[in-house]
């Protein structure tokens, strides 16, 4: 039982930190521009595919560096030539624009790379077990994933709180007009933040691609979960996004690892139902079975009882 718990925690950490890389960019973009970027997970997918193509020619490490850069440039271009134009038509138009963009990116990926699963491999140098516990290996690559995510978190936090640019960004979040009056180029800051946010998503894609398989559906699987995290954490709050990412990662991991379900609860209560009871599906439900929908349940509950999210302090 102990080994299940330890590994569930590790797995939860890996997933949670990966989700944070996506959520951090999304929450930054939201807090600055008020745009919930539906295509954010699509940039994550683009990162994986670019890295795959680069790794075929030049190996994994160059892909790790260049794929996020390409994705970041693409993201900045989307902001400059797409979002900025749509901005005039209001928030709904912006949301719908990113929604359409997500759709288009998925189709474009199928057009350029085809619908098959891509054979994107982790580098050989990380192809060894980091440690073996109770007969189960924890691969070095997963350790590497944790390392990269933690570095990103620390780096992002330092930049935002300690550096001059970070202070300007924070000011632009709350008082964009004042910042503009002080002579800063706010549209440029917006473009930069959007580029960095999407580059972070791209980086997440680069390191997740070899483990979570690179295929055209990888954005959809992750897309709505990232929203859930940003909303649960509180829109615009980086710390909230961090906590919510880990919370969701661990919650799902523990739920899958557990073996409990409605039958146990009914046994405990001493109730039993016939197999042909109309609600039989409910009485036989198990926690691992519903693990993937737990984040959405949490989302709805949080929004009903605490619409600002865990750490958020504003609603719009």
């Amino acid at each position: 039982m102990l080994e299940v718990f330890i590994f569930a925690t590790l797995n939860g950490l890996v997933t949670g930190l990966l989700l944070f890389m996506l959520a951090s960019g999304l929450t930054l973009i939201f807090s600055m521009m008020g745009v919930l970027n539906f295509a954010h997970a699509s940039f994550y997918m683009l990162g994986a595919y670019f890295a795959y193509s680069i790794s075929l020619q030049f190996g994994f490490w160059l892909g790790l560096i260049f794929a996020p850069l390409i994705v970041g440039c693409l993201g900045a271009a989307v902001e400059r030539y797409g979002l900025r134009r749509v901005h005039e038509s209001g928030h709904v138009a912006e949301l719908v624009f990113t929604f359409g963009l997500a759709f288009l990116i998925e189709e474009a990926i199928q057009f350029f790379w085809g619908p098959d699963t891509k054979n994107y491999q982790s580098p050989d140098i990380l192809d060894f077990p980091l440690f073996t516990l109770f007969g189960q290996e924890f691969s070095a690559y997963r350790g590497f994933m944790i390392g990269v995510s933690v570095l990103i978190f620390i780096g992002l936090f330092r930049v935002l709180t300690r550096s001059r640019i970070g202070i300007i960004i924070q000011a632009a979040i709350t008082h964009p007009n004042t910042v503009a009056n002080l002579g800063h180029n706010v549209p440029l800051i917006f473009m930069g933040v959007f580029g960095v946010g999407t580059a972070l998503a791209g980086l997440a894609g680069v390191i997740a691609g070899p483990v979570l398989t690179t295929f055209p559906g990888m954005a959809i699987v992750l897309g709505s979960i990232v929203f859930v995290i940003v909303v649960i954490g509180g829109l615009g709050s980086l710390a909230g996004a961090f906590i919510a990412s880990l919370l969701i990662g661990l919650l799902q991991s523990y739920a899958i690892a557990s073996d409990v379900g409605m039958p146990d609860l009914l046994n405990f209560l001493g109730v039993s139902f016939e197999r042909d009871h109309p609600l039989n599906d409910l009485w036989t439900m198990t926690l691992p079975q519903i693990a993937p929908i737990l984040p959405f349940l949490l989302l709805v509950l949080v929004l009903i009882f605490r619409p600002t999210g865990l750490m958020g302090n504003r609603e719009e």
Binding site: E3, F7, A8, N11, V14, F134, Q136, L212, I256, P292
Partner: peptide, 15 residues
Amino acid sequence: GQVKDFTPYVTKIVS
């Protein structure tokens, strides 16, 4: 089609 990462399931298989 909704599982991101099968590792938690594999952990159960191993144990």
